[in-house]
Amino acid sequence: MDLEIRHLRVVSAIAEAGSLTRAAAALGLPQPGLSAQLRRIESLLGGVLFDRDRSGVTPTPLGELVLSRAYTILPGVDRLLADTERITRGDAPLAHVRVGSVGAPLLGHLLLAIRALLPGREVTSRGHYAPGPLLDDLCAGRLEATVLGDHPGQELTVRDGVLLHPFVMEPVFALLPADHPLAALEEVSLARLAEEDWAAPHPDSDRTRDYWWSAPALDGHPPRIPYEAEGRQLIEIVRAGLAVSLCQATFTEVPGVAVRPLAGNPLWYRHVLAWHRDGQLARHRAAILRHIRDGYLNACADSPTYARWRQRHPHAARPLS
């Protein structure tokens, strides 16, 4: 067996995901199948690429070498495929519009905007927990647009041929069990929150946890994290009263959890929209942004905690034009 581009994609996906389970989900493969692929690749290359333990995977020195080469090779291959696809497609109308999104409140509004502006097109979406793979897919022509997110000091890197449109910077809020004593407060001190057990995402390529721990109240004193989870699993852990966490300001409270602002607004999250500079969605940019702006403001109004925060901070967290 010869080394192929798909093998480099598998190795890169595992490194970006930080675990075989996450990588298998991102690639749409069963985990045993991905494990078998990795063993064949390691056999081909003559050594182990990842050290594996209960917390995930870490590249070995050989793995670091292979990844460094993969990160050099794959972007060039992706650009070649995207350029040839655009040339062969020409100006033919898109029959299938593919969009992606991190966990954010903008995806539904983006889908509705595209359906309204391009009636009759098939519109599909897929999600990913980190923005990097979605941006890679956008650059490679596997997506037409995507919803991304980043934090101050961790801004997304601009890629050739891609338009990044920062949409709004909003505060990060506390996520608490509904019966937690801190839920009775109008706002929560991050230092006080750090004394609790936390549920938090696995440290991965989007560096969310790195950003959280950079806040002055946590810098050098990160809280205890007995529960690594995200999405629905994280919410259920908080709802059970086992931990606290952080969330986007537009998070909709569900029974059993409470959302509260952080005192002093020490942490922020930026929503970013991205599409091809020369793609067919770019010509609808202004209309798409208007559609999403209206939807975002409705989401703000539907979140009572965030709506009260916005009344107290009228000049903050305004969608950018």
Rank of each mutant, 00 (worst) to 15 (best):
T84H: 01
P133F: 11
G46V: 04
E122K: 07
L267D: 06
D204Q: 06
A217S: 13
E64I: 00
R142K: 13
R277V: 00
L185R: 13
R40K: 03
P75S: 11
D136N: 09
S12M: 04
V244T: 07
G103S: 03
H284M: 02
Y296R: 12
P32Q: 02
A184D: 07
T146L: 08
E16N: 10
T124Y: 10
H315R: 14
P152D: 10
E64V: 00
Q248M: 00
S214G: 14
L297I: 07
G56D: 03
A24K: 08
R115G: 01
H96D: 10
F173T: 01
I288A: 01
W309N: 06
R9S: 04
L27T: 12
A317Y: 08
Q248T: 09
L218W: 00
A301D: 13
L267T: 08
G256V: 01
A282T: 04
A194N: 14
T305Y: 02
D83Q: 10
W212D: 12
R79M: 08
L45K: 08
A130K: 09
Q31F: 00
L111G: 08
R142F: 03
R159W: 00
H180P: 09
A263S: 04
E16P: 01
R207M: 14
L190W: 05
L273Y: 00
I225W: 11
H284Y: 06
A243T: 02
E196H: 15
E4S: 08
L20R: 10
D294P: 02
R142V: 06
H291K: 01
L29E: 15
R54D: 11
L106F: 10
E170V: 06
Q37N: 03
R285V: 01
H291Y: 04
P61L: 15
R260K: 15
L289E: 15
A282D: 01
P166S: 11
L94A: 12
S245D: 06
G18W: 05
E64P: 00
M169Y: 15
A299C: 14
Y129E: 07
Y211T: 02
S55P: 02
R40S: 11
T146N: 07
I235S: 05
L118K: 07
T208E: 10
D51G: 10
L176W: 08
A15T: 09
A95N: 02
L320T: 06
L234M: 13
P166Q: 06
S101V: 09
V57E: 01
A240D: 15
R89Q: 12
R270L: 03
V259Y: 05
A191F: 15
A15Y: 07
G161R: 03
Y306A: 00
Q154N: 13
S125H: 11
P59Y: 09
G90Y: 12
V254Y: 11
C300V: 13
H7Q: 12
W198D: 05
W268M: 14
L44P: 05
D219K: 13
S101M: 04
R6A: 08
L45F: 12
D51A: 09
A217E: 14
A286M: 14
R207T: 11
Q31P: 02
V168N: 04
P319L: 05
E186T: 14
S125C: 12
L34R: 06
L94T: 07
